[in-house]
Computed example of a mutant assay.
Amino acid sequence: MNGVITILITKLIIVICCIPLVVFATQQSPIKLGMSAALSGPSAELGVQLKQGADAYFKQVNANGGVNGRKIELLALDDQYEPHLTVNNTRYLINNAKVDVLFSYVGTPTSSAIQPIIDSHQIPFITPFTGADLLRHKDHIFNLRASYNDEAKVQIDYLVKQKGLTKIAFLIQADEFGLSLQNALTKAMLPYSLKPKAIARFKRNSQDIERALEKLKQSGAQAICLVGTYKPLARFINLADQQNFKPYFTSVSFVSSNELFARIKQPSKVLVTEVMPKVDGCKQNWCKRFLQSMKQANITKPTRVHLEGYANAFVFYNAAKACMPLSNECLLQKLQVIKMQLDKSKKNYVELSERVKDNTVFLNHFTFTK
């Protein structure tokens, strides 16, 4: 009898010991990505669309078993495009949520504000929605998109070489984003021995552009390089037209051409540099999967911002799956390998598109990053 009891107890111990092993094999800890972006306020469409694009890809990944058996969790917090909120969000994501990676933050001033935090923690900061040079020279930061220097050069070359314009002025958002582009645009003008005719500024997250408009009108500018988000820039273009001031306008990709063009009320000469392919013009397999994913997500009008979020997720997944186990060093190394492959195949480019209301012309002039 005692022998039977001993056998039963032994079997019970074996069963109990095996339970945690089964649970561990089927429920590995998720990979946590933390994102801080404008999800409300005047720049909300940027953060919302970028997150929607990434979510669509990660949903597919998780449905197919995740990254080497680990699901991906994307925790996105709203910072309203205000740096102090980005700082609070980042501290929470690192210290409380214990994220593994900071992913697809939106904006230069917001990303700039958290540099001391990410430098201190050496946490990977990948695929930010900005082309600022200040985020391009650190080992723990990975950029997928082209730089603002690339975009600025394309704009100035186009205005001077193809349009023959030399009187160029700037409308600048008064923060790190504006300063970054001001420097890039000024640098791009140097080969032509040109300087900006005038520089006017406006406050971030505001549409207070009347004084700036008056200053730029008085400058006699033939073209104005715009640096800001879609709402104030659309208001500037519309108000300029009402005052019979009709120069060429340019903007970098951060503006979201889709959102800007939708708010322009009259025929206008607006040029926007883009760093993602046309949504309906990209023929690569991942672009085709993107359109299918957008349809499944009930997003009927996908934009380049959606596509960039999807591309960011696509690149992260391909780097992460090559790391077993996943570590910061391996992830960043694999991301750099992917970036070198993209640069070599000239997939990372700046595209210049021209918008005249109700007559959109995609010029298809490509400048590939070095």
Rank of each mutant, 00 (worst) to 15 (best):
D157V: 02
V160F: 10
K161H: 09
K161T: 06
K161Q: 07
Q162H: 15
K163G: 03
G164N: 00
L165E: 11
I168H: 03
A169V: 07
I172D: 02
I172W: 10
I172Y: 04
E176F: 03
E176R: 00
F177G: 00
G178E: 04
G178M: 07
L179G: 03
L179P: 00
L179M: 15
L179W: 08
S180Q: 04
S180T: 06
L181S: 09
L181V: 09
N183F: 08
N183I: 12
T186C: 06
A188V: 04
A188F: 02
L190Q: 15
L190M: 14
P191G: 09
P191H: 12
Y192P: 06
S193T: 13
L194A: 10
L194Q: 14
K195F: 09
P196G: 15
K197M: 11
K197T: 14
I199W: 06
A200R: 04
A200H: 07
R204P: 02
N205P: 04
N205A: 00
S206L: 06
S206E: 05
Q207M: 09
Q207I: 11
D208W: 06
I209C: 09
R211S: 14
A212M: 06
L213D: 07
L213I: 14
E214T: 15
K215N: 05
K215Y: 01
L216V: 05
Q218K: 13
Q218N: 14
Q222W: 05
Q222P: 02
Q222V: 01
A223E: 10
I224M: 05
V227S: 03
V227K: 02
G228I: 11
G228M: 08
T229H: 08
Y230V: 00
K231V: 12
L233I: 11
A234T: 00
R235M: 02
F236I: 00
I237F: 01
N238Y: 07
N238D: 10
Q242A: 08
N244W: 05
F245L: 00
Y248E: 06
Y248F: 13
T250Q: 10
S251N: 09
S251R: 12
S251V: 07
V252K: 04
S253F: 12
S253D: 09
F254W: 08
S256Q: 12
E259N: 13
L260T: 02
L260Q: 04
Q266F: 03
S268G: 07
S268L: 11
L271A: 10
V272N: 05
